[in-house]
């Protein structure tokens, strides 16, 4: 790895200032499980890393049944799935947080980092989109909020401007009869990158779908919020036929490529299979919620 400067920020203001000084040549460091690999492999070249782990606000995990969940951007995955109240309220988010890497990666890597890394395959991103999560951003110009589905702009790129950092991710409290699920397909059973990932959520009124969100990983340059696929189910009964129609709409929303992890045809096929399975699981959870 090339020489680099390391700054451990103590406050959001300090982090923003330190990052702004270096522009594109500086990036935040949380768990480091992506950026250290990228720096070592020469895929990113930076002059400065600004460590977020000593900033209290970025390390808070708070959950309240009425106001919902707030995940500090540097909170490692294990804290999210290790919190009994969070795990019980957000099983669909836990699906994603508990399958990134292995236990060692989950001990460091954060959901915030997964989002900021902006990989098309980021597992937590479709789950966050399905949960209508919002990114809280702080920067030299003040604070702003961006829905997670609008956060990633290109592979490895986000809406964050020079000096801006992700402070926290806010996930609304689940409505009554809300259910969500994230599933992915990988050739192995662990330690792999999603060939396709699908996050789905819905709110049920009896067997009728009153809200539905579907998001996809590894099928386009950025995680895809498949609005038409979700809309295809809203107002309809949660039947096999309607689920299949939504799965086909999800397939239509994707622009997959062929690479070492799978062919475009296979990915399209998998979107159909996994969307159906994710919806079925979300329905099951909604009924139990």
């Amino acid at each position: 790895m090339r020489p680099i400067e390391y700054v451990a920020a103590k406050t959001v203001q300090e982090a923003v200032k330190s990052l702004a000084e270096k522009g594109d040549a500086a990036r935040p460091l949380a768990g480091g499980t992506d950026i250290i690999v990228q720096l070592r492999g020469g895929r990113r070249q930076l002059d400065r890393l600004v460590d977020m782990k000593a900033i209290p606000e970025l390390n808070e995990l708070t959950y309240n049944a009425s106001s919902g969940l707030r995940i500090g951007a540097a909170v490692p995955c294990y804290r999210v799935y290790g919190d009994a109240a969070v795990a019980s309220a957000y099983p669909g988010l836990i699906d994603a947080a508990s399958l990134i890497g292995g236990i060692q990666i989950q001990g460091r890597g954060s959901i915030g980092g997964n989002l900021c890394n902006a990989a098309p395959s980021g597992d937590t991103i479709p789950a966050l989109i399905a949960h209508s999560a919002v990114a809280e951003i702080a920067g030299p110009g003040g604070n702003r909020e961006v829905p997670v589905e609008d956060f990633c702009t290109a592979p490895g790129r986000t809406v964050l401007q020079s000096g801006e950092i992700l402070v926290a991710i806010r996930v609304p409290a689940p409505a009554a009869h809300f259910g969500a699920c994230y599933i992915r397909f990988i050739p192995r059973n662990e330690m792999d990158i999603a060939v396709v990932g699908v996050g789905a959520s819905m709110v049920l009124d009896g067997n009728k779908v009153t809200a539905c969100r579907i998001a996809l990983a590894s099928v386009a340059p950025i995680p895809v919020y498949a609005t038409a696929a979700g809309a295809a189910l809203v107002g309809k009964e949660a039947t096999e036929e309607n689920i299949n129609a939504a799965s086909e709409a999800a397939q239509a929303a994707a622009t997959p490529i062929s690479d070492m992890r799978g062919t475009a045809e296979y990915r399209t096929h998998l979107i159909g299979v996994l969307t159906r399975r994710a919806l079925q699981s979300a329905i099951q959870r909604a009924k139990e919620a």
Binding site: Y6, G31, G32, K53, Q104, I105
Partner: peptide, 11 residues
Amino acid sequence: IVDSCLVLGVE
């Protein structure tokens, strides 16, 4: 448990 290759010495 962590992979020590993904932790910086300074961290």
